[in-house]
Design a protein around this nucleic acid. Sequence first.
RNA 1: GGCCCCUUCGUCUAGUGGUCUAGGACAUCGCCCUUUCACGGCGGCAACAUGGGUUCGAACCCCAUAGGGGUCACCA
Length: 605
Amino acid sequence: MSLLSVYFIRVSVPEPAQTRFDLEQGPERCSRRFLFNASVVSSGLESGVVNHPSRHSTYGTIYSDSRCFRLCLHTLATIDPMTVRTRFAPSPTGYLHIGGVRTALFNWLLAKQAGGQFLLRIDDTDAQRNVAEALQPILNGFQWLGIDWDEGPTLDGLSSKGPYGPYFQSQRLELYQAAADKLLETGHAYRDFARPEELAAQREEAEKAGKTFIYDRRWMASTPEQAAEFEAEGRNGVVRLKMPRDGVCAFNDLVRGPVEFEWAAEQDHVIQRADGTCLYHLASVVDDYEMKITHVVRAVEHLSNTPRQIFIAQSLGYALPIYAHLPFVAEPGGSAKLSKRKLAAYLKNKDFAGLFELGQNIAKRTGLSTSLETFNPVIVDFYQTVGFLPDAILNYLLLLGWSLDDSREAFTREEMIQLFSLDRVNKAPASFDIAKLVSFQSRWMNSTELDTKVALCMPYLKAAKIVGEQPSEEEVAHVGKVVAAAGDRIKVAGDVLDYDDFFASDETLVFNPADVDKRLKADPTAVGYVKKYREVLSSIESFDVATLEQSLNQFMEAEGIKFKQIIHALRVALTGKSVGFGMFDAMAILGKQSCLARIDRAMQL
RNA sequence: GGCCCCUUCGUCUAGUGGUCUAGGACAUCGCCCUUUCACGGCGGCAACAUGGGUUCGAACCCCAUAGGGGUCACCA
């Protein structure tokens, strides 16, 4: 079995025209930013094609000059940037994990940047359930986030679009079968008749001895006769990879640099089950090839799967894709992988619990029944329901493991696409920080146009039955005023529900008892001023902010009092609460009639 | 346990041998603004995991140790 030759080159002067390289034969560690994957074409080290996938990307030939190599830039690329094809391959699990979105985002960015294609492929080789249904939240999530796929399932999850379809693995079984057959034919795989419990026993034994388990191929059937013999014993056959037992598997990872694994430590993985169905690794390699994927960018959990996939690919005669393994997204405040199964523990995190509670409240008000399983900050649906902005989420996720420089944090989609590069992706896991996510959301929300904000908030008001399904023009205008006055207090669209007191009828407005006690009952003087000021209000014709402000100023001057001597009582009287918008904004929104009616009601309390 | 990986403020990160008494952001604390809340402004606290080397000089290169994590399926 011939190994891919990988050499690593260190560049000393990153100048375009006359760059010098020191050639080293991997796996020496050096800064990955100066690492290039060189597939050396000739047998010696005289020349080769250099694939330099960084920002100052170029491709070229290296020529030997004893220990030094010169890169001559070619305008022609080995990999035409336009052919960059990346993919995200979710299983139809019924939800879209926030960590998965980060992986998908990086893939999407890479493809968009190069003008290539991003595809979605559904890894449902093991699917027991209704795939279209379990796919829906995933497809919805990507659609909502604006991560569009050039090829993959249709929006309804029922069929495929794109030239290399179908994009459901469950519909490509013949392809995998053919690949398995070929592997068998060429001797890269074998039929095996071991029983699971027999292997488990051996595995346990190896672990006890502190050694890597290596299957001794005891039940490998080399001939049809032998296979028949095993079958006569009542054994079921699977197909296993016949992995090399010496040498190393070396490849260059765009994030992790040179990587090496001992072949001998690799298992003879099963690629086809006893029932004839094929497994993920085979399917994945076949599909990546058939779908012409150029860059396999996935989470680091898959790093240790790469040797077996390389083995499959090379055995099948495929050219290898470029690999990049992203660090995983870690749990809030921890370093373990973020997992949907550990929600109870995350709920002990203050920020996580806070956001979760906010979501619960909004869901309750909008009449949405939720369960922890399907509605929590690990799942993308949650953010959509609560009213986050896709741009904010993408912006935050972009910075989880990637940075541009020492200061810049805000990126629009266009900027992300333009500036993203794999060579600035970190190796260490990054923990998911809810507070920072929320901070990005606030920033993005604050820079959103009023009309857009109103449109974002409207569905919440409708769902909570605060405005009608078909709001009248006045209603829409009223919402506009409230949202404008709320300003940056609305951080997520669902926050608009906090201002329902501007929609309540004057008769049903609920007064917060604690605020009433503190600002009205405990302060009769203030109440007296409010009563007096009510008379001033009743004579005002035009209820706009400027007039109102002027009237109160005159009133205070006449009474010889300060703002704070009346404002708190007035606020509680008008809105039922002691916190809220600017006072004059609030009065202008309510209008004269409501203001008077509410003061009258408050005075009865 | 085997194999592999990771390690800079609480968190995300900048950092590629001298520009580092280590920069930015979030969080936090204080002050200012103020009409409550929110925003905003200013400032403070706060990190190179440890130990050895190499070097005139190490956050950066090498080696150990420690800690953390990933992965070891007829799952994906």
